[in-house]
Every structure is written in structure tokens, then in C-alpha cells.
Simulated scan of single mutants.
Amino acid sequence: MALDQYKEEEEEDGMSFLDHLEQLRWHLLRSISAILVFMVLAFLSKSFIFGVVILGPSKVDFITYQTLCRISEALSLPALCIQELPFIIQSRQMTGQFSMHITSSLVVGLIAAFPYVFWEVWRFIAPGLYDKERNAARGAVFFVSLLFFMGAAFGYYILAPLSINFLSNYQLDPSIANEFDITSYISTLSMLVLASAVMFQLPVVIYFLSRAGLVTSGMLKTYRRHAIVGILVLSALITPPDVISQLLIAMPILVLYEIGIFIAKRLERQKREDEEELRKKYND
């Protein structure tokens, strides 16, 4: 019944339900095509994408480790300088290296094409919004993409290398050597980068929920302690089992949560000002 009503409403607007499905199909095809293009480019750039980008955090000359060494020299804290990563990466399956080449290329393609993919999603959603809603969400593609890349950069340059350093140096007994499979290494790196990129979308989520009236700044403040516990639990689920990695991803998310409270406050103040302006016009 609801589906029939939806079809009738869409037909009154000049576009049928099937037309919307056709439009969605083309948006999806263009998005997938963009991902595939970047995936192919990454696949062909094996020496750089795999040798430099993917394996970068596994080498002591990685920029994060070098920066920590410079900080350790300036602060006279030699413990900060990472001079050795005592592990090797190997492939135990015949198709391991080829399958991981494809997987890593897909992840790189997804990250590189994200702004275009989100733009295609936004193009499909935007026509169904009111003019006021579209104006309120102006710049959504830019800010969502910016936060996505900031999160991916945080995961790649901060979270991943420190997690890899911790896990590579962790030993139950000196007789046990750390020999990581290429599948495990790439899966862990991809999970950390993508999870950070998604988690950095928290201010955007709070913005739209606040615009919809589903959350308020007061509600966010009231449940701040619950949010802290939830963030810590979520951080434990998406990071390797070490406290350092969990805290590293939890701290920026807590900062983003506070930014979300500030955004909700501004929206509430703007809403009050708009209501006051409308009240004055009505009284005049």
C-alpha cells in the first residue's frame, strides 16, 4: 500500500518509481566505474602503491617513525625513537601475493574515488530535498570528503604505524619470532585506515541528526559519559588488541564528539533566531 502511494506521488512529480530506479542504477554504475578506474591505476602502479604506500608503515624509514626519532632527540627521550621493527612479512599461500595485490588496489581505488562516489550519492538524494534542506546541506560533499581523508590520514600516519610497532615488538617469549602473513598485514592496515575515515564522519552525522531534531546539544551533554564508554568499546573492536591503538583512535573521536556538541548548539541558536525573526514579521 505504501509502495503504491509512493509510486503515485512520484508520478505526480513527473518521474515514475521505475525512473528513479533507473536513475539510481546509473549513479551506481558511474560510482563503481570510478572505483574501478582508480583500482586499475593502483594495480598498474604496483611498485609505488604496494612497495611505498602499503608496506611503508612496516619500514623504519617511514615518516612517522622518523618524526618520532626527531622528537626523541629534541626531548632527550630515546624511548620514542623506533629503530627496529622485528618482524617479517611473508606469503604462505600460492595466490597470497596476487590476491592481496588486487585487494590493496581495491582499497586504494575506494579511498581515491570516495569524493566522486559521495557526490553521485548526493546527486541522487538532493532532488528529493526541499530548497531549505539543500541550502542547509550546502558543502556536504566537501566537508564529508575532507573528514574522510583526514580520518584516513590519521589512520595511516598515526594509528597504523604505532599499532604495527606495538604488535611487532610484542612477544610472549623471545623464542617466538613474529612472521606476519601478507593477508593479515594488509587486512589490519586497511581496517585501521577505513575505520578511522568512517569514524571521522561523526560531526557530519551529528549535524544532520540535529537538523532533523533527533538530537540536541543538551542530550549530547547528558549522554557524554555513555558516549565515552561507547567510543572506547567501538575503538577496542576496530583496532588491534592493544591499549595504545584504542586510545589513539578514541581521543580524536572524543574531540569530534565535542565539536558535534558545538555544531548542535549553533544550529539551535540559529533556529531560535529564525523563529524570533518570523515572530517579529508576524507581529508586524
Rank of each mutant, 00 (worst) to 15 (best):
M1G: 12
L3T: 14
L3I: 15
E12W: 02
M15F: 02
E22R: 09
W26F: 15
H27T: 12
H27V: 12
L28G: 03
I35Q: 13
F38K: 12
F43T: 05
I49F: 15
I49S: 15
F50H: 08
G56Y: 09
S58W: 10
V60K: 03
Y65T: 09
R70K: 15
I82T: 13
E84Q: 12
P86C: 04
S91C: 07
M94R: 00
G96S: 13
Q97Y: 04
F98D: 10
H101Y: 08
H101G: 01
H101N: 04
V107T: 05
A113N: 04
W119P: 01
E120C: 02
V121K: 00
N135C: 01
F143L: 15
G151N: 12
A152H: 13
G155T: 05
Y170P: 00
Q171D: 00
L172I: 12
D173S: 13
D181A: 07
S190V: 14
F200C: 12
P203Y: 01
L220Q: 09
I228L: 13
I231P: 06
T239F: 09
I249S: 01
A250Y: 14
M251T: 13
L254K: 10
F262P: 00
F262V: 06
F262S: 11
R269S: 00
K271T: 08
R272Q: 06
E277N: 06
L278V: 07
